[in-house]
Design a protein around this nucleic acid. Structure first.
Lengths: 233, 233
DNA sequence: AATTGTGAATTCCTTCACAGCC
DNA sequence: GGCTGTGAAGGAATTCACAATT
């Protein structure tokens, strides 16, 4: 186990490995080798071993990794053993979709508050029964509800101010869907999903034919991109 | 102007520069220096100059870049001078939100078809008046409507098959929101938005306090992922 | 004087290759 | 024999620093 700083490229891959392990566990596999995982994602087995080695020695030589055991370790490393309270700001199309999205792991992420500035929306409830609140109260509610993660789904023009407010209230983790570069203060992390960049990247690809498309794809996936995605701030 | 292969990290940044130039143009600025742009996004001015230099010599020494001129070049490079026809597959919460999303540049991206496999949804129209079609016809419609980009917003279990079908129909650019790793065939590009990875990355950050948060943030944003990115696949 | 364009240096990330262990 | 963990090598992306240009 090393103490040097771990790259976000590495930690993002941990999520991918965890997903893989979940599937393996569901299919009844007891152990898995780094090579087997690497094959699934078209990446290098040494990279998987190295990624894991930043956090400990989880494998057994000659055997591989015990699926359940490694899964438990990764969940711990990723902080998924605690449930994080999440708020969504901006209940337009995207915000509403996210509020109703069934794909989150509700053991790890619980949406507990919704904010909007449109009086017509305030007081409405989403399918899950959660009520949309006035964004006048953001700071107060974030504190009282112990919200740790905020999803920004407001227009670009409002995003900066929202970030400012939630940061002021102590939030240190933000997922931003507004197509704008946000400058968080030190100690605050913003992950960006920038649909404009993602689409323009496809446009570039279509406009500039290349014969190495697959390799490009794989590299970018496994680095993210964070990209997340996409885009980041 | 070089002929070597351009990294996707570079081309994604072009989108960011273009957005910056749009704002500058709106504010009436005639020229801009790489340093001025770099300041806005907390990145290195040499990187901007180098990114641009892959595609030509757009600047004037001692002056900087002419905003309108560089903007035009970037739009051309990114293929935004042509309008791409887009389809969305899967009209759940997310797909519907995307179908109604107002943030796209409609000069460059036009949503022209919606597909779902739920008989209850087929025939319904979105706010924009576009009708949801049966996904039985995906291939046929993609060809007849000349669709170049497909947005996958179906559950993870269905994503692989959708990719297969649209690829078979000739689509080479895909934006995937399903939380699964897709293996596109050569010549097909898939950009991924993996909300699971993006959230888990925030969870990791919260679980592992570090004092270098801001730097990490900036680096990841400007590289993306990815992420798209967030996440990629 | 200011700013670009770029070779060189640096930093970061990935892959190789093998010793060590089961 | 098979597989992990990792030092060393290789490759890629960023940043430095300066010559070239207006």
């Amino acid at each position: 186990m090393k103490t040097e700083k771990v790259s976000e490229l590495t930690t993002n891959r941990l999520s991918i490995y965890l997903r893989c392990l979940n599937e393996l566990a569901a299919s009844g596999a007891e152990t898995v080798s780094s090579q087997a995982m690497a094959d699934q994602f078209n990446l290098n087995s040494a990279q998987i071993r190295k990624d894991l080695a930043y956090f400990g020695e989880f494998g057994v030589r000659g055997v591989g990794y015990y699926v359940e055991d490694l899964s438990r370790h990764l969940r711990k490393i990723l902080g998924l053993t605690e449930r994080r309270r999440v708020a969504i700001v901006g209940l337009g199309n995207l915000g509403t979709a996210l509020a109703n999205y069934q794909g989150f792991d509700y053991d790890s992420f619980e949406i507990v508050a919704l904010f909007d500035d449109d009086p017509a929306k305030i007081g409405r409830k989403t399918r899950s029964g959660l009520e949309i609140q006035s964004d006048q109260n953001i700071g107060e509610v974030i504190r009282s509800e112990c919200i740790e993660i905020v999803i920004i789904a407001v227009p670009a023009t409002a995003a900066e101010r929202v970030l400012e407010e939630v940061t002021e209230a102590g939030v240190r983790a933000v997922l931003n869907f507004a197509p704008i570069h946000l400058n968080p203060r030190p100690g605050v992390k913003v992950n960006n999903v920038d649909l404009t960049i993602l689409l323009e990247s496809l446009s570039y690809f279509l406009a500039n034919p290349s014969d190495e498309a697959v390799n490009v794809h794989h590299r970018e996936f496994l680095r993210h991109d964070a990209s997340a995605n996409g885009a980041g701030g």
